[in-house]
Amino acid sequence: MAKSALLGSSLAKKYWMALTGLFLSIFLVVHLAGNLVLLGGQAMAEDFNAYAEFMTTFPLIKIASYLLYASILFHAIDGILLTIQNRKARPVKYHYENPSANSGWASRNMAFLGTVMLLFIVGHMATFWWRMKFGEMPIDAVGQKDLYTVVATYFTTASTAWLHVLLYVVAMIAIGFHLWHGFQSAFQTMGVNHPKYTPVIKKVGYVFSVVIPALFAVIPIYMFITQ
């Protein structure tokens, strides 16, 4: 399925971008909900660990997570294919361009922002996901894998903790910009454009793209400051 859709028309490729993008946005909310538990500190460490355990073992969630991995890959590969095609469509570049006169920065840099995010996701998964699944984990008081301690160490006591926080925040900024354009753009691509509702969708998108990454970013900053 993936192959034929990717080889399909330019519009089909865009539909997939939009659908996977929106799906990933929903995932962000779920992920954030879990992460916010971290703000409870050591007191809620066991709750966080229980949540992490649930997320990695419950069958339905597992299926969803494979869908998620596929989406990330799909979104990235599709994006790369589109970008290659776009580059080919203008082999000779302009000598001088003034694009800020007609379009927003984020909308013109989706591929760049996406690349930043992809690099982050790789690092992020290596640090937490891989270790949770396949690495050695400390065990908490009730015998769960103690992801809380791993996270806390990473952002507070590790020698390069400040760098971890900084990279995390940069990545969240990238996500914010990517969503700033991507959220409403996905609706336009799916054909949703209405004089009444589009302004609302845009506003929701802007709020979403600021609030969600900001809340993500607050967690390591908070942990770092209150260590």
């Binding site: 330019s10 865009k14 095609q85 203008r90 007609n102 379009s103 989706m110 354009h181 753009s185």
Partner: peptide, 12 residues
């Protein structure tokens, strides 16, 4: 031709 990224430059 390339693909639409919905930048809105065309409309502007």
């Amino acid at each position: 031709f390339g693909n639409c990224t919905n930048t809105g430059a065309c409309e502007a």
